[in-house]
Nucleic acid binder design. Sequence first.
DNA 1: AACAGAATGTGATATATATCACACCTTATT
DNA 2: AATAAGGTGTGATATATATCACATTCTGTT
Lengths: 230, 230
Amino acid sequence: MSGMSDVKCSSCTLGSCAIYTLSSNELEDMELNTCQAGYSKGEIITKQGTPLNSVIYLRSGFVKEFMWHESVADQVIQLIKPRSYIGLKGLYTNSSSVFSYQAITNVEVCFIEKEVFGRIVRGNGNFGQEILIALSKESISNHKRFLNLNQKQIFGKVAGLIIYLSEEVYESSLFELHLKRAELAHMIASTRESVTRALKWFHNEGIIQMKKNTVSIEQMERLSEIAKRG
Amino acid sequence: MSGMSDVKCSSCTLGSCAIYTLSSNELEDMELNTCQAGYSKGEIITKQGTPLNSVIYLRSGFVKEFMWHESVADQVIQLIKPRSYIGLKGLYTNSSSVFSYQAITNVEVCFIEKEVFGRIVRGNGNFGQEILIALSKESISNHKRFLNLNQKQIFGKVAGLIIYLSEEVYESSLFELHLKRAELAHMIASTRESVTRALKWFHNEGIIQMKKNTVSIEQMERLSEIAKRG
DNA sequence: AACAGAATGTGATATATATCACACCTTATT
DNA sequence: AATAAGGTGTGATATATATCACATTCTGTT
């Protein structure tokens, strides 16, 4: 967790849509109860079970939301893209984090105290609306992954995963894979080896191109066909 | 879709937590833009792709959220319990429904125009907060099912499904299965036959008891052990 | 540059479960 | 009561993929 020069919320260029709805008073309220931090690739931001009295705003970088599951290997729930809130869904539950969050690139975040956050939601319906929108979008995005898991064949699941990463996370047909094979596998209830084989096959067929860890989708049509039919 | 005598929002005994935050003006606004309906078991409430300019409030009964997926059989996303909002996550997206909703018992619902709903959210932060809470809870509940799918063995998945139904939907260790075997299977990416076998085995082991379509969880410990370890 | 450790690729095999085929049961309809 | 139709139970078989074991490549550190 590396230090960094603090940016005021009011002058932040990486803020959420939501903060544009805030009055200067509200903004100041938030500023006073927010603290900024940087993490480098690989660092854990919060661990499940740990107290967490903040909503975390991801200014830049990508974060992995996951759980360490008893016997089973870690389960990756989703990847979070920059300019989104982390752990919003925990805002109104208990004070300890349900999930763990890890920086998968270098990352800048802000910790906003839950209490202030809630106060502002209650006081400013427009802010609430924006948060509601954010949460809805996350929810729908997760549903897509969910549906993908109902696909039985791994090739279909891997194809769906690539599409998810491209559309919901990296928002580009060209992106770097920040997760290793085993983690990708854990996102679709499969194994490292099976993911390797699927990616290799897609590559050989010219459906995607992979050099190093950079994926480029070449034939989206075929890819989504595979994601649908298996 | 059977008719029924209309209840005013202000005198509704089956309202959400959220509506208790409303002023009488807001309540009236809602009343004027809400219409009530009843469906009987099996009826489709909304079909995916169909225009939907309302948030639907489920006063009583249970509803299945699902998609008809191209080649593949229907995919059940979740079951919705009474006194919750249906399609909240679609409030701020497009005007056509992403999912289909079917009554799996007799059901009473209210259609509240999205526009009014949004207006009230913006005007009343406390209402917004309650909606946010509802959405968060739904989100977390779905995450649990999600994690369960990452379980590879069917016995584990079926066990997890039973726990989900008991804890998140029916809120009792004794409940009636409103879904048929094939639909249960579609919730966990498995098959009718495998679900049959798993349930049979649980029954024989005395972990659950099943008569007709009523399930009673007898040994929660073992069930959750199976859900965890497979 | 050399090394160690991690991550990834690859083939052979085992195995869980999907699939198939059919029997049985339940429910509704005539 | 008889019939039909939808749902469920059950065994035999096929098959996709997990598992295993090892080779290869990549990564960062001394």
